[in-house]
Design a protein around this nucleic acid. Sequence first.
DNA 1: TCAAACCTTCTCATTGATGTGCAGGTCAAG
DNA 2: CTTGACCTGCACATCAATGAGAAGGTTTGA
Lengths: 137, 137
Amino acid sequence: MRIGTLAERTGTSRRLLRYYEEQGLIGSQRSANGYRDYAESCVDKVIQIRGLLDAGLPTRVIREVLPCMDTPRAIRISAPTEETVALLEGERDRMTERIRFLERNRDAISEYLVAVREAQAEGAPQTPNSAEAAVSA
Amino acid sequence: MRIGTLAERTGTSRRLLRYYEEQGLIGSQRSANGYRDYAESCVDKVIQIRGLLDAGLPTRVIREVLPCMDTPRAIRISAPTEETVALLEGERDRMTERIRFLERNRDAISEYLVAVREAQAEGAPQTPNSAEAAVSA
DNA sequence: TCAAACCTTCTCATTGATGTGCAGGTCAAG
DNA sequence: CTTGACCTGCACATCAATGAGAAGGTTTGA
């Protein structure tokens, strides 16, 4: 498929897809006229890239990790070197750390939201902002 | 405490602490000589800022969120506007999404690592890279 | 008291990562 | 021939963070 189709199907701009290619995150064939020609699997790949970037992983890491998660999974074991395995183990651990971090902070926000609701429900049903004056010092 | 102490206790650079103040994330008193004087609570605050930034929240959002998470929690509810609450709910959901995504991808890496180990153990004990030739197409 | 070592201040400039905009040109279909 | 999708390449935008330099405060020990 061409870049416009991929852009539409993944919800990213054409420009960004070229950027990801430049960064080595995705690849493409070229048609005779020079147009990029993407495989079907690129759709999932791009979505995955978006997710990983949004999760805070830098492109450098995604570039390493992504080839190991090709679909269909079973086909490609692709003989990693020991260094690659070590790197992946490291990344896996870092991701676990990151997950914990996110959970802690999300929970803090959640707790706050609960506290706000409670304060609004019991404390000041008439003026929702009345807590401020009492506390703002 | 002065900036060097805070930097040491939070593991951030002095430079970055000044930057956070410039961004409105933390505050400080000034001593007679102009030196910044930080409250004890700043230690936790800075660590939390680090966590939230790492979680992908922009400073603009953290600036909104942070006053809501002051310790001790109970004292300050600080009357968020409805917009802030909505924003926080959005961020909370986005973080949950991110967590799910990270978990999925981390698990994919884990699975891959397991598959690699199995392949190495059973398939080709003599040449660890022999899988590559069979698959690399 | 003096000086060296260290800490702090401010400001301007820069880096690195993730994108976006746009100009100038090519290609293909109506 | 016009329109729209595509190409390359350069510049720009934003955000978080850092570097460097000049000037002044603080501490400590000779």
